[in-house]
Design a protein around this nucleic acid. Sequence first.
DNA 1: CGATCGAAGCTTTTT
DNA 2: GCTTCGATCG
Length: 816
Amino acid sequence: MGESDAFEAAARPASARSLSAQAMAARPMPYLDGLNPEQRAAVEALEGPVLMLAGAGTGKTRALTARIAHLLLTGTARPNEILAVTFTNKAAREMKMRVASLMGQPVEGMPWLGTFHAICVKLLRRHAELAGLKSNFTILDTDDQVRLMKQLILAAEIDEKRWPARQLAGIIDGWKNRALTPDKLPAAEAGAFNHRGPELYAQYQTRLRELNAVDFGDLLLHMVTIFQAHPDLLAQYQRWFRYILVDEYQDTNVAQYLWLRLLAQEHSNICVVGDDDQSIYGWRGAEVGNILRFEKDFPGAKVVRLEQNYRSTVHILEAANGVIAHNRERLGKSLRSVGEEGARVRLIGHWDGEEEARWVGEEIEAMGRGTRGMDPVSPDGIAILVRASHQMRAFEDRFLTIGLPYRVIGGPRFYERLEIRDAMAYFRLVVSPDDDLAFERVVNTPKRGLGDKAQQVIQRMARSNGVSLVEGARLAVETGAIGGKGARELRGFVDGLARWRGLMLGGLRAVGPEADDDLLIEEGAVQDRLSHIELAEMILDESGYTAMWQNDKTPEAPGRLENLKELVKALEGFENLQGFLEHVSLIMDNESDDQEEKVTLMTLHAAKGLEFPAVFLPGWEDGLFPSQRAMDESGIKGLEEERRLAYVGITRAEEVCTISFASNRRVYGQWQSQMASRFVDELPAEHVEVLTPSGLHGHQNMSSSASPVAGMMQGSALHEAAARADVYNSPGWRRLQQNQARPGLRQPSEARNMTIDAEAISVFALGDRVFHQKFGYGAVIGIEGDKMEVAFDKAGEKKVVASYLVSADAADDVPF
DNA sequence: CGATCGAAGCTTTTT
DNA sequence: GCTTCGATCG
């Protein structure tokens, strides 16, 4: 729709446009008001390549949207001549809204403002045949992908145990991110997946084509391949997309980069916005190099740096600057605050993860009341940002017990849930009966007595006749290849599909006079054009799917039924099932629209682009954050990405930023003692306030401060440091230092060890009887640096840090 | 074919 | 520790 207009627009002589541009220039441009000089420069440099380096909170969305408004209002471009790409639907939506509000009118058109994927789907549907597909191809999600690969691995007689499909999926995804088609794989990749990777990749692509399906990576990859193979077509789009804007450029992968470069290379009217310091998606193929290289790719690029931060106070910003300064690979930029000095970043250590959660809960309640002369902060303005989602659990548990309302962002998405995917598979089968993957998914869900054997029969039947699985199933029943109970059930299933499809087609058909005497159509007519919502309900009921969950007495069954209801409700926004399926394959967000004021719990990744008056950053412990795995797998690069994550976390905070760590944490069920994160040491001391933990530790220093709040008011970092100075001179401390003087371990800083009880420090030998606050009495059975393996009498074998142990006979002296 | 038991695994996540 | 997957048994 509107696409032919776009072609006409592109064909119009340029002079007409520049004329109107001059005419418009005289008009007031309110969207420019209040922009700082840098932002303004980025907005007004319409021609040629522009690189906008926009730090956190520097108003880049504002600049980007103003630029679009400027393009439109000066008449430089029409809405359909602008290609504006984002990564998430949310960002796309926001951009659309903000452009509209800047222009003071709804933006009609802007058909090419969207995510990379949404735009590529649109393009690929028009040119599907150039990729060997039909334009109604289905888009597989990760689950389908893996199942498909599992089949291929099985067929290739590879031990799926040693070479799991997930891993292959990861490898192939990586290749697609780098725009490597099977025929372009470099020799270096030959060894992947036990030397079978390349061959399986080729098979996988063939299979996808047979299924008339693509995965997410294909959307970009196919378009790049098509553009490369068809210069004429590319040229058409180059003329069409006269102005290109890209958000979050630091997150682009090679395929996206190539796609953009192909489209932009003729006119070079490309404006990219990004922040190399916020590149946190390297693990899924993002290439920071793209942004670092932009000036080389597009010679003469105008580089604009947005460094004026409007979000955070001085202390918060300086803390973030201090941490990120430890990264080597940077374009270099540092944020200036225009705000107040504000409060320092608060740092606190805790005994364990539960105590950390408890403390955060109390702090949030205190903030709600308003402490330290600060205005009360509503739960809505508070976020807890964790490195990994499993960390959320401790907080959820705690918030549940104290009745603090919270919302979790991220986690399993609505459309990724089992029951939703099953239901969708039914819909898919009705809409496109040759969707074999959907068939496989639900043929025996609910149980129809169709096990492996029956399914193999269907597969064989379908393959030997060159038909879809649905058709194969029908044949299998008719020829008696499947008999007994299974056959009856299968017939019911296949007939059901046909009937629903008939109803769908009948329901869509206008009430024609010549409604033929086909029974199915007539049924539809009796119902007077069954709505797609009723149809969906009917499918779920008659297939027995709803009943399956109703009869399920596991605790999650009611929730699943609830979700199914929600799914049906979501259909209301669409004309028909097809439209819905198309939408869902790309839009996977799960915005809950509840109004209640809640604390937000989410991962650091999910927090990018957001801001909150108060932010808690728990779990700053080496191994957790920075994540051990990131460092093991990607070394220094991984570490730097983790550090950027820290930077993203700190810069989410507007007024209060609280970082915390715990000395003990359960990791995969095992208690582990933790070291404070190295990022803690990188925080510039002058912008940090060290809080006294509320628990059992450090009590000898805080006899005067019974509550954590009182403690934080009195205890400046300096004060604490002074109070602790003696600790580091004790013989026990020195011996501890020697024990842990392994390469790679840095000197612990004051903050890292603030929970250490001076009196308790001592060094033990194998077999010593010891006492631990949490686990009680036990015997030392292993020593690993500063970590002791102890067989506790009651709690079993644990690894703990030596400083939390006291000799068993001294235990009575330690006041707990 | 379905239920039950044991082993292995286990970031981050959008589309 | 908890979940998920596969193998094995009835």
